[in-house]
Simulated assay, not measured.
Amino acid sequence: MIDILLVDDQKILLEGLKKVFEPVPDIAVCATCALAELAEEACLRYRPDLVLMDICMESRTSGIRICRRLKERFPKIRVVMMTGMSELAFVGWARDAGADSFIYKEAAGEAFLDCIRRTMAGEHVFPVIRGRDTFGAAEANLTERELEILQLICRSKSREEIAELLGISKRTVGFHITNMLEKTGHKSVVGLAVEAAEKGLTSAETQNECERDDTVFS
């Protein structure tokens, strides 16, 4: 039996997922949380095998931050991140936070069951989005921090402003930019920013919604 902890602030989704899992003999919902901050306490109390958690919730702490905490504190618990938003950067953020798998909320019930079972079997299930979550001719992957800096560049923020917003030095910002250019093969950050905009990875509104705590991605 796979015991699951559901973490999402949308009660309709929680109820919907519970109904999907109810008739399944090998999966059971041991508890639900409407606040990300309660996930750690719930893990201590219910000892789930897997946590299925939304990335962005109406709370002080994002799912990304809680995912990091859970993987550090409960390394044996599998974590599957989910979102109803289409911003592709979330996939990279989930990977960097240590999530075992990732699924979009609009997926069918069978897809959720398949993702959970495969994750518990040791697989890492992530969406395959060829050519859209990689950059440059080298099809390079960017880290969570690099994507964050790239988004701010696309919002016309200067290196000084980026450093201030992220709480890092201007030199560190420059280091990340240089690293991005070397990995992707772009000659200038302008070209990289254009590619990011074309791929829809620069939604400031979506990122702000996820960053209700301004230290989530620091």
Results as ranks from 00 to 15, higher is better:
residue 3 D to G: 13
residue 4 I to A: 13
residue 5 L to Q: 03
residue 6 L to P: 11
residue 6 L to C: 05
residue 6 L to G: 07
residue 9 D to P: 05
residue 11 K to A: 14
residue 15 E to V: 10
residue 18 K to L: 08
residue 20 V to Q: 06
residue 23 P to N: 05
residue 24 V to Q: 14
residue 25 P to M: 10
residue 32 T to G: 04
residue 32 T to W: 03
residue 33 C to A: 07
residue 33 C to P: 02
residue 35 L to E: 12
residue 36 A to E: 06
residue 38 L to A: 05
residue 41 E to R: 03
residue 52 L to G: 01
residue 53 M to W: 03
residue 57 M to S: 03
residue 58 E to W: 02
residue 59 S to V: 01
residue 63 G to N: 02
residue 63 G to H: 01
residue 63 G to A: 00
residue 69 R to T: 15
residue 71 K to W: 15
residue 76 K to L: 15
residue 76 K to C: 13
residue 78 R to T: 15
residue 81 M to R: 01
residue 83 T to E: 07
residue 84 G to Y: 03
residue 84 G to Q: 07
residue 85 M to L: 08
residue 86 S to N: 13
residue 87 E to N: 08
residue 87 E to W: 02
residue 88 L to H: 12
residue 91 V to F: 06
residue 93 W to N: 06
residue 98 G to D: 15
residue 98 G to C: 15
residue 99 A to R: 01
residue 100 D to A: 05
residue 103 I to V: 11
residue 104 Y to V: 05
residue 104 Y to I: 02
residue 108 A to C: 09
residue 114 D to K: 10
residue 117 R to W: 13
residue 118 R to W: 10
residue 119 T to P: 14
residue 120 M to C: 12
residue 124 H to W: 08
residue 125 V to A: 09
residue 128 V to L: 12
residue 132 R to L: 15
residue 139 E to A: 14
residue 140 A to D: 10
residue 140 A to C: 03
residue 143 T to M: 04
residue 143 T to C: 04
residue 144 E to P: 02
residue 145 R to C: 05
residue 146 E to A: 03
residue 148 E to I: 02
residue 151 Q to T: 11
residue 152 L to C: 08
residue 154 C to P: 12
residue 155 R to Y: 11
residue 162 I to L: 06
residue 164 E to L: 12
residue 164 E to T: 13
residue 165 L to W: 02
residue 166 L to G: 01
residue 168 I to F: 01
residue 177 I to N: 01
residue 182 E to R: 12
residue 183 K to S: 09
residue 186 H to D: 09
residue 186 H to W: 12
residue 189 V to N: 00
residue 191 G to T: 00
residue 194 V to P: 00
residue 198 E to S: 02
residue 200 G to R: 09
residue 202 T to D: 05
residue 203 S to M: 12
residue 203 S to L: 13
residue 205 E to M: 13
residue 209 E to N: 10
residue 210 C to V: 14
residue 210 C to K: 08
residue 210 C to N: 07
residue 211 E to N: 11
residue 212 R to T: 12
residue 212 R to I: 13
residue 216 V to C: 09
